[in-house]
């Protein structure tokens, strides 16, 4: 069991790293809206190309991007295959129709483009800065605090989950599709929840003892005009792509 860190390369010196997350998050929203609006193959290909160029601009390590690309690419390929054979139309190759291939490619490009926009905007800043930006943009503080606490506890509980799995393997547990395996897995889940409950009491008492009452997510410093100017090209590009949907 492994938990990847999306902000492992959040501190860098690329043009995207230098942009404030308060500008990158709205730009990401517009990029995603533009990409999700289109159902035309040339436009989807153009959006993918722009997303690819932005990812190059972010100077994120290729291995890191490829590792995170696995899930959307796999899901996208399965979906594209099904769409290619299920869409009615003129036959192209075997069960694949011309319309099906067109739709499959469009959807696949859109999935990849959405992912690349996401990673180039979110992975180029420490996660805490992105959360602060969300707070500055009006996201509820309680929700963000819950998110930050959950993210923190994930890594604490992960060790316990690893220990439990390791203990099972050390005692010769081998997985099969049978009742015994399911019973043991159910006990593993139950133990994980029990450990979490025990932890809640301990953590809460410790926090109350330190005067905890209301979690706060601090606001970042106000944006300077230089920061806004630096973000304008990105926002303009996002708006241009959005406008293309209506004029293409």
């Amino acid at each position: 069991m492994h938990l990847p860190e999306i902000d492992r390369y959040g501190r860098g010196h690329s043009p995207l790293h230098r942009l404030d997350p308060r500008l990158k998050l709205p730009a990401l929203g517009v990029f995603l809206l533009a990409t999700n609006l289109t159902w035309k193959l040339p436009l989807a290909a153009l959006f993918l190309l722009v997303a690819f160029l932005l990812t190059l601009l972010s100077r994120l390590p290729t291995n890191f991007v490829l590792w995170h690309l696995r899930a959307p690419a796999a899901l996208g390929l399965i979906l594209a295959f099904l769409l290619a054979i299920f869409t009615p139309g003129a036959p192209l190759v075997g069960p694949v129709t011309r319309e099906g291939a067109n739709l499959a490619a469009t959807v696949f490009f859109k999935i990849l483009a959405s992912f690349l926009y996401f990673i180039s905007m979110v992975a180029t800043a420490p996660l805490f800065r992105t959360i602060q930006a969300a707070r500055a943009l009006g996201a509820p503080e309680k929700l963000l605090a819950l998110f930050l606490f959950t993210y923190r506890y994930l890594f604490a509980l992960l060790d316990r989950a690893r220990n439990l799995s390791l203990a099972m393997q050390a005692r010769g547990f081998r997985e099969k599709t049978d009742r015994r395996t399911y019973e043991l897995k159910a006990r593993l889940y139950a133990l994980l929840f029990l450990r979490a409950y025990e932890e809640t009491e301990r953590v809460l008492l410790a926090m109350y003892a330190r005067g905890f009452s209301n979690p706060r997510v601090t606001l970042p410093q106000p944006l300077t005009s230089a920061q806004v100017l630096r973000g304008l090209p990105l926002l303009s590009l996002a708006l241009l792509l959005l406008a293309l949907n209506f004029f293409w």
Binding site: F149, Y153, Y197, T200, V203, S213
Partner: peptide, 12 residues
């Protein structure tokens, strides 16, 4: 607000 850590642990 004071229950946020508890819910966060269970969510995790």
């Amino acid at each position: 607000p004071e229950e946020i850590p508890r819910l966060a642990l269970l969510t995790a």
